[in-house]
Write a protein that binds this DNA or RNA. Structure first.
Length: 269
DNA sequence: CCCCAGGTCGTCA
DNA sequence: TGACGACATGGG
């Protein structure tokens, strides 16, 4: 199965740090696990070749997940007058923001705090192995990210096995309050952040990532150590408030997208 | 044995 | 309000 994808860089998108479980195969394709299926993707110029454990409605699933039809070039070009940004954006050409599952993003980014990408991936994988549904694809076993019903009654002893350290109690608190968060998608980003921050272990950065990657909100400010570093080098800013004020003024409703570009460019250097 | 990682919390002035 | 160390774990 083939899906048309113009101005799309599959590799840049999948390896940009927005999803934690992706396997690069020797043939240059990528295997990922999304909400309800395992998918293998390979770029062939302006097409993405798709195979999956579940081909139901696959074209729509892929177009939506990869965010193929959003015109990022149109958004990006309004920022080219800033020399620093033009350089950053050029390095991220073809990078799209995926439409990932909000439940998975919430737990993944709770785990992400004061942690590194490799270890976050390991923990998410372990959580899925222990509590998610097993799916066999091309004679290999994969595990879906657990559904809420799979882990709502999880204990501290259970969660100790995934080795997320002090963050275990944060995940438990998220699960306990999950039913109060059903409305997040309908709130403004500011109100949604306020709601998410009521969970122990979720602050401004983690809630911003949840909204950007789990709800496709581009008007948020995910500022981490990498972004701080690059802003310090390029503008001399040394605190988060300065960066937010600057980003709000310059990047307007696309703060989240631009900060993801900056994160990615910084990490790749 | 040091430092750091897609931060946040609790505490003390 | 604001600064600052602690927090689990693993890798460099």
């Amino acid at each position: 199965m083939k899906v048309e994808a113009n101005n799309y860089d599959l590799k840049a998108t999948l390896l940009s740090g927005q999803l934690f479980r992706v396997k690069e195969e020797i043939d240059g394709s990528f295997t990922i696990v999304i909400k309800d299926r395992v998918i293998n993707l390979k770029q062939d110029d302006n097409y993405i070749i798709v195979d999956s454990s579940n081909m139901d409605d696959i074209e729509n699933v892929i177009k939506n997940y990869l965010d193929i039809n959003t015109n990022y070039e149109e958004i990006n070009k309004q920022f080219y007058n800033d020399v620093f940004l033009k350089d950053v954006i050029t390095k991220c050409k073809g990078l799209h923001i995926l439409n990932q599952d909000s439940f998975e993003m919430s737990i993944s980014y709770i785990i992400s705090q004061n942690n590194n990408v490799k270890r976050i991936s390991k923990s998410v994988e372990k959580l899925s192995e222990l509590f998610g549904e097993k799916v066999v694809f091309k004679n290999q076993s994969y595990y879906l990210f657990p559904k809420y019903s799979d882990i709502r009654d999880i204990t501290m002893e259970d969660i100790f096995q995934i080795k997320i350290g002090f963050r275990d109690k944060y995940v438990i608190d998220f699960l306990n309050k999950y039913n109060c968060l059903k409305n997040i998608g309908n709130l403004s980003s500011d109100d949604a952040i306020e709601e998410l921050c009521k969970i122990n272990g979720i602050g401004i950065k983690v809630s911003s990532c949840i909204l950007l990657f789990g709800y496709h909100r581009f008007d948020v400010f995910p500022i981490d150590t990498w972004v701080k570093k690059l802003f310090n080098i390029n503008y001399g800013f040394d605190n988060v408030e300065e960066i937010i004020a600057y980003a709000k003024k310059e990047y307007k409703n696309y703060c989240g997208l631009i900060l993801q570009y900056i994160f990615n460019a910084s990490r790749n250097n």
